[in-house]
Simulated scan of single mutants.
Amino acid sequence: MHKKEIVTAGKNIKEAKKALIMLHGRGAEASDILSLATHLNVKEYALVAPQATNYTWYPYSFMANPDHNEPWLSSALQLVGDIVKDLNAAGITSENIYFAGFSQGACLTLEFTARNAKKWGGIVAFTGGLIGDKLYTQNYTGNFAGTPVFIGTSNPDPHVPVERVQATTGVLKNMHAAVTEKVYQNMGHTVSQDEIDQANKLVFVN
């Protein structure tokens, strides 16, 4: 299972009023996703990036049957939940907790927040969608209460079908999230400057 290995940056959690949980992609490290924060309007945030054991949150495609990705998927979701509890205990309310992830980390970001919908600070998914061979909407409960969400993706993308991104947007909107979805033609599996700009404009609004 995933060990609780956390890399932090930015403001000290005890001093910060806002926190950003950053989830890296498959084969990457926590430090990789943290480097993205230098381009985001999060200078006053505590930055928290867990490290996936063996550099992957779950072994197979996010489009596989969720059972095939167990017990790693549940372990990853629990780890994110534990981080939220730690932040809450440090005095940072859920309304001031933000999420950002890339690729596999974006999928985990979306899956966790949809399973725990409430008024979060904001959610950014750089190329990701809800997890499963189909959408298991019975797992998604709560109300986002207008939480700003930005989802960016490429068309085509080698790992994330645009159709799943669009279906994910529909689910989140039905749960009262304020979702902005942007599809970039032939962008490739990366994070673009426009995605950074959109995240800063829509989510990380200081």
Rank of each mutant, 00 (worst) to 15 (best):
K4H: 10
I131K: 12
L79S: 01
L202I: 00
V179G: 06
L36C: 10
L77Y: 06
M63D: 15
H176N: 15
G25K: 01
E44I: 00
N12Q: 14
A28T: 04
D194V: 03
M175H: 08
T8V: 14
T169P: 00
S74K: 11
A178I: 05
K85L: 10
Q185Y: 14
V165Y: 03
F112L: 06
H176F: 14
M22P: 07
H176I: 04
N88F: 04
I123Y: 07
P71T: 09
H176Y: 14
F204Q: 03
A114S: 09
P148G: 04
I92S: 00
A52C: 02
L108M: 11
L108V: 13
F112K: 10
L40D: 04
L23D: 02
V191Q: 09
V191N: 10
L172G: 07
A177T: 05
V48Y: 00
G188T: 13
E181V: 05
G105T: 02
N12F: 05
L172D: 13
W72A: 14
Y45N: 01
K18I: 01
K11T: 01
V162L: 12
T137Y: 08
V160Y: 08
V80G: 10
L47R: 00
G91S: 02
A46W: 00
N174T: 11
F150R: 02
K201W: 02
T137N: 09
G81I: 04
A167L: 07
N41Q: 10
I33N: 08
A117W: 05
V191C: 08
M175C: 07
A114T: 06
A28Q: 13
R26G: 12
E44F: 02
H159D: 13
V191R: 07
R164Q: 07
I97H: 00
H189P: 14
L73D: 13
L135M: 15
D67S: 15
T93P: 08
K134C: 11
N174K: 14
V191F: 06
H2W: 12
N88G: 13
L172N: 14
K11M: 02
Y184N: 11
T141K: 15
G142H: 09
V80T: 10
V84T: 07
K43S: 13
H24R: 10
T141R: 12
L135Q: 13
F112A: 09
G27F: 05
A30I: 04
A167F: 05
K119A: 02
V205G: 08
T113A: 02
N96V: 04
L202Q: 01
I97F: 03
E70G: 14
Y55Q: 14
Q193L: 13
Y184L: 14
V80E: 09
D197V: 10
N12T: 12
E195C: 01
L110R: 11
A9I: 12
T56E: 15
H2R: 14
F204M: 02
Y136V: 09
M175A: 10
V179R: 01
E70N: 15
P71Y: 12
I21N: 02
L87S: 08
Q51D: 07
W57D: 14
E15T: 01
A178D: 15
G142M: 06
W72F: 14
H176G: 09
E44M: 03
L73S: 07
S192G: 09
A167Q: 15
K173G: 09
K85F: 08
I6Q: 05
P71I: 06
P161Q: 12
L40G: 08
W120S: 05
I123H: 04
T113W: 01
M22H: 06
G132D: 08
